[in-house]
Design a protein around this nucleic acid. Structure first.
Length: 123
DNA sequence: ACGTTGACTCCTA
DNA sequence: CTAGGAGCCAACG
């Protein structure tokens, strides 16, 4: 049967379904790369397709697709969010910090992250 | 069924 | 930092 998430995107495509599920898991205040999303979805290497899936996501959806960014920390092209500054506004409202050149501070907000890094403490 | 197409990434210059 | 090229892979016409 067709997979359909209430309030989400109507789709019968497994690839898109998996990609959207991965995107939905990105915590607030964090960002994930297209390649990371593709890999989490089970399609390693399909980062370009992950981007296509974002472009087809409906604007009113609950999906936090504004948290999906390029690996180098740059944002999607302006037309993607209506205006070039729109995505940056959304991310900043979640507490994501940008460098002075308008690039996301990836080291600080990237997700998923290596859990071992959070465990290394006193010792 | 095959050629094109991308909200990508990597590498080089 | 910018620009161009090649590889990538599922969707689409």
């Amino acid at each position: 049967m067709k997979s359909k998430h209430s309030g989400m995107i109507e789709m019968d495509n497994l690839f898109y379904t998996r990609v959207y599920e991965a995107v939905a898991q990105i915590p607030m205040g964090r960002v994930a790369t297209y390649s990371a999303i593709a890999e989490l979805a089970g399609y390693p290497g399909a980062s370009r397709e992950a981007g296509l899936a974002m472009s087809r996501a409906l604007w009113g959806s609950e999906l936090p697709y504004h948290r999906v960014v390029n690996k180098n920390g740059t944002l999607a092209p302006g037309y993607a969010f209506g205006s070039p500054e729109r995505q940056k506004q959304l991310l900043e409202s979640e507490g994501i910090s940008f460098l002075h050149n308008g690039i996301i501070n990836m080291d600080r907000h990237i997700w998923p992250c290596d859990v071992r890094m959070e465990q290394m403490t006193l010792f």
